[in-house]
Computed example of a mutant assay.
Amino acid sequence: MDEKIIEISFNIIAHAGDAKGLAFEAIKEAKEGNIEAARECIKKSKEGMVVAHRFQTELIQNEASGNKTEMSVILVHAQDHLMNAMNFQQLAEEFIDLYERLEK
């Protein structure tokens, strides 16, 4: 397997994992009534997701240019991490809004 694909995959996994962790931290902060801290965690989570997306975009652009990407369990795992982190981040934002409403 191409070492560049492995490197990109692990970068997606790392950045998406960090983003998901920050989203989870955001829910925890919101649950404790720290809405501003929760929103800061989500902001940082989104920043991490942008980095993960850049790596994914690199793969997409490479393949769109005619360079076939070899599929592997690592790449599938990376994509899974990215999608789960995106979903978790969206749910975390909903939780923050809900906890904020409950505080009022």
Rank of each mutant, 00 (worst) to 15 (best):
N67H: 13
I12D: 02
N34K: 15
Q79F: 09
N84E: 09
N84L: 07
E100L: 09
D80C: 08
I96D: 09
E58M: 13
I74S: 12
A30T: 09
D18Q: 13
A26E: 06
L102W: 13
F95G: 09
K31H: 11
K43V: 00
I12W: 00
V50E: 15
V51A: 04
D80Y: 07
A78V: 09
A85N: 08
L98D: 03
I60Q: 03
F95L: 02
E32I: 01
A78S: 15
G33P: 06
M71N: 05
M83Q: 03
E40A: 11
Q61D: 10
N67Y: 10
E93K: 03
I27T: 12
R39L: 12
Q89H: 14
Y99I: 04
A64P: 02
K28F: 05
E93N: 12
V73G: 02
L98T: 15
G66H: 07
K28M: 12
E36M: 14
G17R: 14
A38E: 12
K31P: 00
E29H: 15
E63I: 02
V51D: 02
V51W: 02
C41A: 14
V73D: 00
I12H: 04
S72I: 07
E103Y: 07
L91D: 04
A64L: 15
Q61Y: 11
F88R: 09
A64V: 12
E70V: 09
A38Y: 09
F24E: 13
N84M: 14
I13L: 04
F88A: 15
C41W: 01
T57H: 01
A64G: 03
E63N: 11
D80N: 11
E58K: 13
E40M: 02
S65E: 13
V76P: 00
Y99T: 05
E103K: 15
I96S: 08
I74R: 01
K31C: 04
